[in-house]
């Protein structure tokens, strides 16, 4: 059985009204102290912001470029095909840094 639209409208309107009519909540007496205790435990805001915060702020700006480079590298690796033991053998045979066995 389908609920009539009018009924649903009325229920919805009343529920939204009840939400808005809710009493404001007041914090307990110790709440402020517990926040300050946590804040004293943190030392993020010291100085002019700290290198970590600054890094976090700017690192994201390079994320798109980093993803693009990672994709290019992946495409390169997939197209050339890298096999670990072949690479190692080539290095030993070519002896590029005068490596004496």
């Amino acid at each position: 059985m389908k609920t009539p639209k009018k009924t649903l409208d009325k229920v919805e309107k009343y529920l939204f009204f009840s939400y808005r009519a809710g009493d404001d909540l007041r914090p307990g007496t110790d709440w402020q102290e517990s926040v300050m205790t946590d804040i004293y435990g943190l030392r993020v805001c010291e100085g002019s912001g700290g290198g970590q915060a600054l890094f976090g702020r700017f690192a994201w700006r390079f994320s798109a470029a980093a993803c693009f480079i990672a994709l290019l590298l992946l495409a390169y690796v997939l197209s050339t095909g890298v096999v670990d033991y072949q690479e190692m053998a080539m290095r030993f045979l070519d002896n590029p840094i005068d490596f004496i066995i």
Binding site: G22, D24, L25, W31, S34, L42, V44, S48, A53, R57
Partner: peptide
């Protein structure tokens, strides 16, 4: 916070909001 989360958890969420505000003040 008081209207959005259950009353029993409101203080904790408000607490987290202020701690988050503090850690983000430099930004």
């Amino acid at each position: 916070v008081g209207r959005r989360v259950p009353r029993r958890d409101a203080e904790e969420v408000a607490h987290n909001a202020f701690v988050r505000a503090y850690t983000s003040l430099s930004t």
